[in-house]
Design a binder for these strands. Structure first.
Length: 576
DNA sequence: TACTGGTGCGCG
DNA sequence: AAAGCGCGCACCAGTA
């Protein structure tokens, strides 16, 4: 039937200084092969994309798509061989002897850092492909065939198709996010810094308010020269004035009563702002009104995205006012309320927890169920259950949840026990933990030998519990990341389908393809920011909401769990 | 001078 | 030292 199948994929590979493109049909049979000069790639891709929207298959998204996007070419769908390989190779759903597991070289260097000095985008010509990934088209074809086979013969092809598609969509989005950037008002950032720290000083001198806080600390310590940035020196200075703390961390200091505490906490806060997101950060990371972080899809073991450079995933709330829409544009800022517990309810099929989650506030629902007395207790108990708390208030409250939500709790408890025993656990769509390290396994088996010391046993036990807490959380955090990918991917498609606002007026352009159209501008685990022309802001907000509902159905079908969003349309990303 | 490990803190 | 998960980054101290 191969000849009758419509084309489905185009696999791209490099050949000398050109590109080879191979069209495959649904069965994976080759239909056509094109040889293109690298300089003609963008135009050719744009033609194919507009005529039949193929799914583009390539070894690594950033160099391919970065180059296309820089030339104004957007694509709808892709299959990222590197990211999909990482998922399939480790997935417990894939057969142990699948060919995809035996590929060599792929895992040696999962990600090539882009040169932070390089202006603009990644590009094909100067990109170093990740070591071991299939660069030429026949290698890419072979790898793609192994991946399709691994999925087709897995215990759940549907889930793995969904996961690799979502992961690949994420790869496209990460490149687009970098290209678009987060609208950033440097003047507003400067205003916040000046108001908080004092005027910027040249030559490395501390701004006035920071210097004043430092002076008050040194005064209270009775030592005009002590270094406040050296932990050992500060600790000794504190001990000298009778503040007998074991660390200089904020929460421990906050429990002490001494004149040095208040100014020291103030100093730490200001100092942190200056060193992490001060003027140096602004100079390095914000250009032409955009902050362009490097997102790293799949960069976290659980499947969450990581980031590289600029601390994109750690922007302090203090600076949210500097995130500001262009004139004539708005920001749609949306986050999911209590994503992880909702995901836990759905994946465990716990109707009681799902019922508590109905409506806006899941924690209030837990209080209503009678499991605990206050919202704060509900939050602490649930986080404790998902993270594996054993002591303190959290550890004390978790057993109450076990009685009220036995299905949800046994899912995470089982995951913890499997992890402690050295086993593997998987997310809802099939991303699986790595095997424990050889050292870990040796430690565990040695601890059971007769000659093992008590210390050996204690160490092994603690390490087993550490792994149990990891696997316990992995299934929830990882499935939440899958939900978020599905949300993003569907949202991206909805935004792209909005009619572009005509360029006739003088309002500036934005976005990855230089159109006056709503586009994703930021993503942080359970939150998105969309930058939209004002005329489109309401439609974009609706798209964000609709995409969340779709993501819930894609992952969990008709299971009655909802994912309510907090959505705001405003000029800045400031939270209410 | 370049590295590694520890500490602390920002985010979810 | 957060009571318990996952990160990135700045800074210091010790070592090579």
């Amino acid at each position: 039937m191969g000849a009758a199948d419509p084309p489905a994929w185009i696999v791209l590979g490099r050949s000398g200084d050109g590109v080879v493109a191979v069209e495959l049909d649904q069965s994976g049979d080759e239909r056509d092969r094109h040889r293109l000069p690298a300089s003609g790639l963008a135009e050719w891709v744009a033609d194919e994309e507009s005529s039949w929207s193929p799914r583009w298959v390539w070894n690594d998204t950033p160099p391919w798509y970065g180059g296309l996007l820089a030339r104004g070419v957007r694509v709808g769908r892709c299959h990222d061989l590197r990211l999909s390989h990482a998922i399939l190779r480790g997935s417990a759903l894939v057969s142990p002897d699948a060919a995809v597991r035996s590929a060599v070289g792929w895992d040696a260097s999962p990600y090539v850092e882009p040169d932070p000095e390089a202006p603009g985008l990644f590009d094909l010509e100067d990109a170093k492909p990740p070591a071991g990934t299939p660069v030429d088209v026949d290698a890419a074809l072979a790898e793609f065939a192994s991946q399709r086979e691994a999925i087709a013969e897995s215990t759940d092809p549907g889930r793995l198709r969904l996961l690799t598609a979502a992961e690949s969509a994420g790869a496209l989005i990460a490149v687009e996010l970098r290209a678009a950037g987060l609208p950033w008002d440097a003047a507003e950032h400067d205003r916040i810094l000046t108001e908080t720290l004092g005027e910027r000083r040249t030559g490395g001198a501390q701004p006035a308010l920071l210097a004043a806080a430092a002076a008050r600390v040194r005064e209270a310590l009775g030592d005009p020269a002590v270094s406040l940035d050296s932990q050992p020196k500060l600790l000794r200075a504190l001990h000298r004035v009778g503040v007998l703390v074991d660390s200089t961390s904020r929460w421990e200091l906050a429990e002490q009563r001494h004149p040095v505490i208040q100014p020291l906490l103030e100093y730490k806060k200001l100092s942190r702002l200056l060193s992490a997101n001060g003027w140096a950060w602004l100079d390095e990371w914000v250009h032409d009104g955009r902050f362009r972080p490097v997102y790293v899809p799949g960069g976290v073991v659980t499947g969450r995205w990581a980031s590289s450079g600029g601390g994109a995933l750690q922007l302090p709330r203090q600076l949210r006012e500097a995130v500001r829409a262009d004139p004539g544009w708005s920001l749609v800022v949306a986050d999911v309320a209590q994503l992880e517990p909702r995901v836990l309810a759905a994946m465990s099929g716990d109707h009681a927890l799902a019922a508590a989650a109905r409506g806006r506030d899941l924690y209030a629902g837990i209080v209503d169920s009678g499991a605990v007395a206050t919202r704060q207790e509900a939050k602490i108990a649930l986080l404790g259950a998902m993270y594996g708390a054993t002591t303190g208030e959290s550890g004390r409250l978790v057993p109450r949840l076990r009685r009220t939500y036995p299905r949800a709790m046994s899912l995470v408890d089982d995951a913890a026990r499997i992890g402690e025993d050295g086993g593997l656990v998987s997310t809802w769509l099939g991303r699986t933990t790595a095997l424990p390290s050889a050292e870990w396994s040796v430690m565990q088996s040695q601890a059971t030998q007769v000659e093992a010391s008590g210390a050996d046993e204690t160490r092994a036990r603690r390490s087993a519990r550490d792994r149990g807490r990891f696997t316990r959380n992995f299934i929830v955090q990882g499935t939440a990341a899958e939900w978020a990918l599905a949300w993003l991917a569907d949202l991206r498609a909805r935004l792209a389908a909005l009619p572009a606002v005509p360029l006739a007026d003088a309002a500036p352009r934005s976005g990855p393809v230089f159109a006056r159209q709503a586009h994703l501008a930021f993503f942080l685990h359970d939150e998105v920011i969309v930058h939209a022309p004002q005329e489109q802001a309401e439609a974009a907000a609706q798209a964000v909401t609709d995409a969340a509902a779709t993501a819930g159905r894609i992952l969990f079908g008709e299971f009655p769990i909802d994912f309510p969003l907090d959505v705001r349309v405003a000029d800045t990303a400031l939270k209410a």
